[in-house]
Design a protein around this nucleic acid. Sequence first.
DNA 1: CGACTCCATGACAATATCGTCACAAATATG
DNA 2: CATATTTGTGACGATATTGTCATGGAGTCG
Lengths: 228, 228
Amino acid sequence: MHTNILIVEDDMAIREMMAFSLKREGFDAIKAASGHEALEQLNQVHPDLIVVDWGLPDMSGIDLIDSIRRDEVIKEVPIIMLTARSEEQDKIKGLERGADDYLTKPASMLELMARIRAHLRRSKGFETSHKLTYQDIEMDASAHEVKVNELAVNLSLTEFKLLKLFLQNPNKLLAREHILNHVWGRNTFVEDRTVDVHILRLRKALKPHARDKWIQTVRGIGYKLASM
Amino acid sequence: MHTNILIVEDDMAIREMMAFSLKREGFDAIKAASGHEALEQLNQVHPDLIVVDWGLPDMSGIDLIDSIRRDEVIKEVPIIMLTARSEEQDKIKGLERGADDYLTKPASMLELMARIRAHLRRSKGFETSHKLTYQDIEMDASAHEVKVNELAVNLSLTEFKLLKLFLQNPNKLLAREHILNHVWGRNTFVEDRTVDVHILRLRKALKPHARDKWIQTVRGIGYKLASM
DNA sequence: CGACTCCATGACAATATCGTCACAAATATG
DNA sequence: CATATTTGTGACGATATTGTCATGGAGTCG
């Protein structure tokens, strides 16, 4: 079976050396020299792991990670950041923003390979059960079913996606911006207020079967799923 | 929700420092000073993540990893190795043998915390909450929650940001100028006195649940969060 | 002890934000 | 094709939040 690894690195020498090492180890290397090239590649292939250089000619590696993590399809892919800087703050920023690992250049190819294998070992056999629950709310994402207190609830598609997002982030505050990106997608132009209306509809749909106030309003920011 | 982290480290100073940092960030730290102590602990609790020192008095950290990975119940737990040696061969051996990550001592606590959160994000499927605490005050920024003495406190957005700034700089004197820049932003035109009013409101909000005087006035300059 | 500066506090008006409804357009359903 | 359902948006009243001011009190200094 093929294991595809995407290398995003503008320095040709390093890029080719990494590709060579990867092939030596039996992986398939996909190459990109810039952030936009990487995004183009990602429209075609869904790699098993991505190695990203911090400093790219057109965008920061962090921005690229943001884009990937916001894409519903590929957001689960492990990402290893690579950088010439060794400042601790960069490392921490990278890890906080969604990178899974962080290496400082000049990186040892052997260590990079070892870390790649460690991450792949994890993500293989990664089976997400499509059941999500929070208290009395049960969702079977693959069957597109929602139950509250064992009673089936009928939700429109948007309401369903909205509830799914909440169930994936229980007790977390979700900004309207964030909700828009994840439920409607990044390139759609929808008013902020629209979120409110759909929250209202979701609340109405959940209300009959259970106690109210599952979705709380955080004034000035957004909403969160929480028990009061 | 509790997130248990097992620290396996024979050096007491390092072990306690790590435990302290973990608690500060809202994790529950379990401690073990040797391999056998670790295995005993693992019979009782199933931690969400394990930090293992390479050199233990009774067994090598690698042997401990082997034991863990052979146990059907806990073998999935993420493991971060920590070592005084920086030899590349050790790193690679550790990663090949089942560690998920590898840090060289003296490790920065901030980097360790960032990596811990990155691994938990993977294994738990969502962001771990990032907590700030100072004495009886607890703030979970991602959930937008503040508790004083375990009791929830309702804060407006400005009050929340203000308290967050204080919690990020405990015991530090913050000038009004500085507060304005960080809470209101650099390009907003707000009177200095406005800070005073919001300090007042924040004090009022915190007061009912706990002893007063957390936020002290420093005449002529600003305020600071400090215990008297 | 004055004289002065600086801060705490309450009141208030302006503003921002939210919940809700109604409606029209888009889409699905039969 | 006719009829539901879903979806996005504007409007508007209710409510929370916010910035500013006025006032009195506390702190500081010679």
